[in-house]
């Protein structure tokens, strides 16, 4: 079996006396996707912050690409974060920088890459999310959906192996949300990045889990996923700090558990 790119082993975290995570364990294999569901405040986003090392757990171990990060000093975490791309809720774009500077931020500021190469890479990722004409705009001039796509582009620039999405479609209309879903599917199927999506938008979650992106005659199409593809995406449901369900879309749909049924209805 392949080594997991992300591994949680008995992770617990509480803020004061509120338990957020209670002995959570799961593995994310290379090229796979996990969709984390749960009610608001169930600790979904906390999982992403723990992976990035922005928060530290009270107990348990977290591994990213084989390295233990839960007790790693901040200085060493910077190297681990180079393998991670994070799409924050609402985008979290730097509002004093242009789209180009946002997308190229890591390469401009944290590497010695020549400006011309950075610009080429920025153009490439902006092209990937279909926004290459917007490079010189400020984030405030973009629509909500465009801002999310820029955030995805920014997360992609340094070619991370793992992408983390925090509520990528929350607050968007259904049509715009679908364009974001398609970007996420493209990245999983065409670029083969491993990813974790945190969301409570069930419609988008199921859309991502049950569709795949294929190249036919040089044209990109989104079709119903083949059984082999369906296996690549797993759902993970959090309830009271524990994992209440882990499995594929079909199993989740046909679950008999009362809480899951209530959540899905």
């Amino acid at each position: 079996m392949e080594a997991p790119v992300i591994k949680f082993d008995g992770v617990s975290l509480a803020f004061d006396d509120k338990v957020i995570l209670d002995g959570v364990s799961f593995d994310l294999l290379p090229g796979r996707m996990k969709i984390v569901l749960g009610a608001s405040g169930a600790g979904k986003s906390t999982i992403l912050r723990l992976i990035l090392g922005l928060l530290r757990p009270d107990a348990g171990q977290i591994f990213v690409a084989g390295e233990r990060v839960d007790n790693m000093p901040e200085v060493d975490l910077m190297a681990v974060r180079a393998q991670l791309g994070m799409v924050f809720q609402e985008g979290a774009l730097f509002d004093s920088l242009t789209v180009r500077e946002n997308v190229g931020y890591r390469l401009f500021e944290e590497t010695d890459m020549p400006i011309s190469e950075v610009d080429a890479r920025v153009k490439e990722v902006l092209g990937f999310v279909g926004l290459d004409e917007y490079a010189d705009r400020m984030p405030s001039e973009l629509s909500g959906g465009q801002r999310r796509r820029v955030a995805i582009a920014r997360a992609l620039t340094a070619r991370p192996r793992i992408l983390l999405y925090d509520e990528p479609t929350t607050g968007l209309d259904p049509i715009t949300a679908l364009t974001i879903d398609d970007e996420i599917i493209k990245l999983r199927d065409l670029e083969n990045v491993s990813s974790i999506i945190v969301t409570h938008q069930l419609r988008d979650a199921f859309h991502i889990a049950t569709h795949e992106a294929v190249q036919r005659n040089g044209k990109l199409e989104f079709v119903k996923a083949e059984p082999a593809k369906l296996e690549e995406t797993e759902f993970l449901m959090l309830k009271n700090g524990k994992i209440a369900f882990e499995g594929q879309a079909e199993e989740l749909r046909h679950s008999e558990d009362d809480y899951l049924r209530a959540f899905l209805s």
Binding site: L54, M78, R81, F88, L93, R106, E109
Partner: peptide, 21 residues
Amino acid sequence: SMMVTEQISALRALGTDPIRK
């Protein structure tokens, strides 16, 4: 405002120490 819009978290996620920057 960078703090409440998660731009500081984004800086850290992109490998920048916000204290230095």
